[in-house]
């Protein structure tokens, strides 16, 4: 799936791929950059760690394939660093999630399927991974939304041309409002989640009692 999606993006939004891969100049046999710090001024990467030719092989299924670089899209490509890092964060977290699920399975098996015999370190690690899927999803959104810039409809309409005329102050105010509310809600969410996790008996008892009365004909109960 990921491969098909990448190839589709390469065909229709080559500058997004170039930003994801941190490829500034068009390359034959492009390397796969594992890490780098893209420098928008110098139009080059610093501190690059790369595997030669792997990028071309992944994208074109030919180790000597040509991958078009950002320089071909000067003035019409997204800011490189956010796309580059968000993609790596997404993939990194995805790998971490896979690794921890397999590690968990292996350790669980080794503990003879007794949850109290599992190493505490692993449990802490899993707890730390609670929001990993969520972070990875958000990073994926950053890649796709920032990666499309400066267009809102790729190649047709620029974002700046269709932005609403709502005053910047209103936008800033509502953004602050949304961020405040969501911060408060996530604190509440984690608190409720923690409470429910720590007191599973209390919560399920509260919910279980009235269930028995549900079968009264013609009487509703909320979902």
């Amino acid at each position: 799936m990921g491969d098909l999606h990448g190839l589709n993006t390469l065909e229709h939004q080559p500058q997004k791929i170039a930003a994801i891969e941190g490829i500034w100049q068009t390359e034959r046999g492009a390397a796969l950059r594992l890490f780098a710090i893209p420098d928008e001024q110098a139009r080059a990467n610093r501190f690059e760690i790369a595997i030669p030719r792997l990028g071309s092989w992944l994208l074109t299924h030919d180790a000597d394939g040509v991958v078009r670089g950002l320089d071909e899209f000067r003035g019409a490509h997204p800011p490189v660093a956010p796309v580059f890092f968000a993609f790596r964060a997404m993939v990194g977290i995805g790998v971490l999630m896979l690794a921890s699920s397999w590690l968990g399975l292996w350790l669980y098996r080794r503990a003879k399927w007794r949850s109290d015999a599992l190493p505490r370190m692993m449990l802490w690690g899993f707890a730390a991974m609670t929001f990993a899927g969520w972070v990875a999803t958000v990073c994926g959104w950053y890649v796709t939304e920032i990666g499309r810039q400066p267009f809102i409809v790729h190649g047709l309409i620029r974002t700046a041309d269709v932005a609403s005329k709502v005053p910047a102050a209103s936008i800033a105010f509502t953004l602050a409002l949304y961020v405040t509310m969501y911060l408060a809600l996530i604190v509440a969410y984690i608190a409720v989640l923690k409470y429910m996790a720590e007191q599973p008996e209390t919560v399920s008892a509260d919910e279980a009692t009235p269930q028995d009365q549900q079968a009264v004909p013609g009487v509703g109960s909320p979902a």
């Binding site: 009235p210 269930q211 009365q213 009264v216 013609g218 509703g220 109960s221």
Partner: peptide, 13 residues
């Protein structure tokens, strides 16, 4: 239709 009539006690699924 399903939830017609008087409301019963509060339950959450």
């Amino acid at each position: 239709r399903v939830f017609r009539g008087k409301t019963s006690e509060l339950t959450y699924a």
